[in-house]
């Protein structure tokens, strides 16, 4: 105890000095305007940098939620665009139809669980199923364009037949020229699709945009697919064989939207009747 007191006495000068300097500093930054501002500014620089880093870390943990909410928002926007396009832009019967009856397409956002791309028959599976309203036969699009068609759905998962599948058949058309045809994947190049059944009198050119026709129940019209890369008449036939270059990279999709057409069953029944 005595030693402690000696110690305090011995260092009393420096202790007093430090205490008084702290007091001075407090007085300076509290009662002097310019010093106060400089202090506030510099301490803000420091705390700002720290806060920014912290925020980066926190936002990383929020990314998943943010992504999900963005996905939902995107689905809403895309839905609105698709329905707007049908109801007003390309509709010559607009005057005869009630606009709310044309609100036919709903989009269900879903995350891709797994996918194959290197096989002859490629599938992706989605983390949503019948519980979320996904039914076999629905079309699947991404924000860039067509992805595929739902082949089967369980309660929680769904399998999608990708565009890059030997069994896939998607009805497409040349944009703004209204020549329609069927898109198949016959090449082994994951960027090239083949379009058949386009009549040979059609005036098409390299670089024309191919979009969905909207004739099938799976896809709404005007969803982009790709551009014409080259075309040729099939030997002795009446149809063009068109190679279509995909505009987007199917291997990089993570989020997709499943298209729910409200009158799907009605329309598909009718088409099936026709085929029988």
């Amino acid at each position: 105890m005595r030693n402690l007191i000696y110690l305090i006495i011995r260092f009393s000068a420096i202790v007093t000095f430090i205490i008084l300097e702290c007091l001075c500093f407090y007085l300076i930054v509290n009662y002097n305007k310019s010093q106060k501002e400089i202090w506030a500014h510099s301490s803000n620089l420091f705390t700002g940098a720290v806060n920014k880093r912290l925020n980066n870390v926190y936002s990383f943990f929020d990314l998943q939620t943010t992504n999900d909410s963005l996905l939902l928002e995107n689905a809403r926007l895309l839905e609105t665009i698709i329905n707007y396009r049908i109801s007003s832009k390309d509709n010559r019967f607009q005057a005869f139809e009630q606009s709310d009856s044309l609100y036919q397409y709903n989009l269900i956002p879903a995350r891709v669980c797994s996918k194959t791309l290197h096989l002859r028959d490629n599938y992706i599976s989605l983390c949503k199923g019948r519980n979320d309203g996904i039914q076999p036969g629905m079309g699947v699009v991404s924000e860039h364009g067509v992805v595929g068609i739902v082949k089967s759905a369980s309660t929680k998962y769904a399998t999608v037949l990708l565009l890059l599948n030997s069994q896939s058949r998607v009805s497409g058309k040349v944009k703004s020229k209204e020549y329609s045809g069927t898109l198949l994947w016959t090449s082994s190049d994951p960027n090239i699709l083949n379009m058949r059944n386009v009549p040979k009198h059609a005036e098409i050119a390299i670089g024309d945009t191919i979009v969905t026709s909207g004739y099938s129940v799976a896809f709404p019209p005007e969803i982009p697919i790709g551009k014409i890369k080259n075309f040729a008449l099939e030997g002795g036939g009446n149809d063009y064989s068109i190679n279509v270059h995909l505009d987007y990279d199917l291997s990089s999709i993570d989020y997709v939207y499943v298209v729910n057409f409200e009158d799907r069953e009605e329309k598909s029944e009718l088409i099936e009747e026709l085929n029988e």
């Binding site: 001075c24 407090y26 300076i28 002097n32």
Partner: peptide
């Protein structure tokens, strides 16, 4: 009218 500024300098030099 500069509370603390002269005090800080003086305390330092005194130390």
């Amino acid at each position: 009218d500069s509370l603390g500024i002269h005090a800080a300098a003086c305390t330092l030099v005194a130390y």
